[in-house]
């Protein structure tokens, strides 16, 4: 599909990192006015776990480029927050849940006047060993920000359950409006345990999504619950909106919402020590 995208001059985009590279290439190829190149570019799209990343991002921003960052590692978040505040709308952050049709639909459902105010939000992403915990956590935190709004306080428990690398993150948050949220991300579940659960309870109702209850199934050696599929992938929608925002000059407005997500992620990455107080944002 070619549809929404750059309406002005061709934008040259450099992809950095191997994470979801094929998906990113396909998404950008579907956006008009985008040229993926390794040469001189105006936009750098980054999805990597390269430990040397923050200096490279700082360099790109200093050169006047716009950087689109997917699910940053926990260790980078503080540095990225500083860069975000310094460079405003030119360091953009992925909002994978915001552009996920499941969450978008739940947001619309929660916004119905008869539902009343949101009082609790739970977002749980479970995946098998080897999955990108940072990406799972980023998605879950984005669900909280998308459905619950600004966060006032967060307590986070991070654990390495299966080895030395962190593979489980639990965060309890208190939203600015008083509601309570919970985000859980795990890269320690068995392959068959891959699952997404989202629950929003409002004053007058409740919205629930559980991927395990999907009727889309493949019966082979074992039961496989199939993921939802869409004509336009959530990644394509997110990148399309990003490119449009560049053209429309609304990057700064979007960046403000992204900064709230990054602030929450920085607090969560701090891992509240035993017996310590929650982090107030």
């Amino acid at each position: 599909m070619s549809g929404s995208g750059s309406r002005g001059a061709v934008r040259r985009v450099l992809l950095v990192g191997e994470a979801e590279r094929a998906e990113r290439e396909a998404a950008y190829a579907d956006i008009s006015g985008i040229q993926l190149t390794a040469g001189d570019v105006g936009v750098v799209d980054v999805f990597t776990r390269d430990p040397d990343l923050p200096p490279a991002v700082a360099g790109a921003l200093a050169d006047g480029k716009t950087v689109f960052m997917h699910a940053p590692r926990a260790a980078w978040r503080s540095a990225l927050l500083s860069l975000h505040r310094e460079h405003g709308g030119r360091l953009r952050l992925a909002r994978p849940a915001r552009f996920d049709p499941r969450i978008e639909s739940m947001l619309a459902g929660a916004d119905r006047p008869e539902m009343g105010e949101v009082i609790t939000v739970r977002a749980i992403r479970l995946a098998a060993a080897g999955a990108n915990l940072d990406a799972l956590e980023w998605w879950a935190l984005d669900v909280l920000v998308t459905l619950g709004g600004a966060v006032e306080r967060v307590f986070c428990q991070r654990s390495a359950l299966r080895g030395e690398a962190e593979d489980q993150v639990l965060s309890v948050v208190r939203f600015a409006n008083g509601a309570i949220g919970y985000a859980e991300a795990s890269a320690a579940y068995p392959p068959a345990g891959e699952r997404t659960l989202v629950e929003v309870v409002t004053e007058q109702g409740m919205l629930e999504y559980d991927s395990a209850t999907s009727p889309n199934r493949l019966l082979g050696e074992r039961l496989q619950v199939l993921e939802e599929t869409y004509v336009e992938s959530p990644l394509r929608r997110m990148l399309g909106a990003f490119v449009e925002s560049l053209d429309d000059g609304v990057g700064v407005r979007e960046a403000a919402a992204e900064e709230r997500l990054l602030e929450l992620a920085v607090a969560a990455a701090a891992k509240t020590p035993d017996g310590a107080e929650a982090v107030t944002l």
Partner: peptide, 30 residues
Amino acid sequence: IYAEAATLARPGLGVEDVAMLVLAFDGGAI
């Protein structure tokens, strides 16, 4: 235990009606 608790489902109730706890177990499980 870390806990957040509030009276949200029925404002004005005399006790908390919503809570969320994070637990640490002896031996390292969470």
